[in-house]
Structures are given as structure tokens and as C-alpha cells.
Amino acid sequence: MTDLLRRLARTPQGAIGGVIVAFVFLLAAFGPWLAPADPEAFNYTARFEGPGASFLLGTDQFGRDLFSRMLSGAPATVFMAVLSTLLGTLLGAFVGTASAYLGGRADEAIMRVVDAVMAIPSLLFALLIVTALGASSFNAFIAIGIAFAPGMSRVARSVALTVRKHDYVNAAVARGEGAGYIIAREMMPNVIAPIVVEATIRVAFAVMLLATLSFLGLGAQPPSSEWGLMVSESRDYLFRNPWMMIWPGLAIALVAIGFNLLGDGLRDALNPKT
């Protein structure tokens, strides 16, 4: 583990990405307590203010402190993105691994269904699920998880096909293990490691997808300060106070870039040949 971190820190992408992601996680974990003001307190005397001494990043249309809102919205954005990616990864890994293990006609059937699902763009697919389930943060999380699963299952299957050829899988079959045990205990742990890289990069997409859903009014609901929702709410006041859009936009971009860099770094660090 420490060796992996050292290898990660050796590449510039890994080092920068790691620092950004660590910073973002800290903010997300402690943000609500660090907020200097109540994120939902109105200040009618100080609406649409720019960055200044009393409000670090300015205020919105109700005079709420943008800095406090950003901090309290961090967990809703970052952790939801990570969790929905995790859901998508586990789901996809299981489907892909099972497909590779079963092989033959079952593999063919599963992968063709996955192909069909993948033909729908993930945003559209997530929209579909959210409209079916109703608009809420939890449903957005489920929707993104499911929307990510087909892509992950393709990646997982290709890894699992090579794992399938290893003799430890044959040994398990030979001693009479059931399919469930072989997929979950023998194959999955060996499949997950390589697709961690893919998952890390996808967190960035999840952040953006989540923000998009909230922007469209299908994710988090007011008065939540989820970053995508903040961008969405600022749209009407774009010209009166652009800071309302700039800060959450920048934060989303930072998280996306951080996870992307970390993913690139991990790919190099996990590859023993570099």
C-alpha cells in the first residue's frame, strides 16, 4: 500500500491528482462544520455581493453565504459521486465477471443486452431512471450507478476473461465449488484491482452527471446546496452576480480534474512495467 502511494507520487499526474482528491475529501468530510455561517441563513441587506471581507466568496439571491453553501454542499456532491461510481463498479464487475465465467451462450446473451443498454447515452439513461423513480438525491445516485454498470461490465469482462484462464479458477471448479463462490471469491477480487483505475476516472463523470441531473432539477432539491443545483439556481441571476455560478462550477471542475489525474496516475502506478 505504501509502495503504491510512493509509486503514485512519482508521476506528476498522480501527485497532483492525489493532492486534489485528498483536499476535496477533507472538505467533503469536514465542510459542514467548517462553514463560517449558516448556509441557509438569509441576509436581505447583502444580496448578490461579490467576494469580500464579510462574505468570503460573496452571496446569492437570498444573501446566503456562498462559501458556507459550497462547504455544506461538498459531501452531497463528492460522496454521492463516489458512492454511485462504487455502485456502478460493483454491479458492472459482477455482471462482467459472471458473463466471463459462464461463457458460451450465456456470455453472448448478457453482453448483447449490455450492448443494447450502452447504446443509450448515460445521461439519457440516468434521466430515464430518475423520471421513472422520481426526483431525489437517492434516486439520482441509483440512476448513475445503474447507468455506469454496462460500461464497467465490459471492462470487467475483458479482465475476467484472462482471470478465467488461471488455474486457480480451474482448481476451484475441479474441487466442486459453486458458480457463486467462484465468481465472488476467486474471480472478483482479481478483477476489481485493474478496474479501480477505470472507476477513478469515472468518478469525475459521476460528479458532472450528478451536477447535470441536479441542474435539470432531477437530482438534489432546494434548499440543498449540491453544487450542480447551485449552478442551476444561479442561471437566472447570471448577469447580476456571476460569482454564484463561477464558484460551484470551478469546484466541480476541480473535482473532475483531480479524479481524472488520480486515475491516470493510478494506471501508471499499478502497472509494474513502468
Binding site: D167, P189, N190
Partner: peptide, 18 residues
Amino acid sequence: RRDVQIIFQHPDSSLNPR
């Protein structure tokens, strides 16, 4: 299956690394 066991050629491949 208990009575008949197999040992494979490559121990690297026949033991689950995890």
C-alpha cells in the same frame, strides 16, 4: 472430487493471488 485431486504446472497461476 475429494478422492481425486489435481496439482497444476504453474503455482503462480494455481494459487489465487488475493
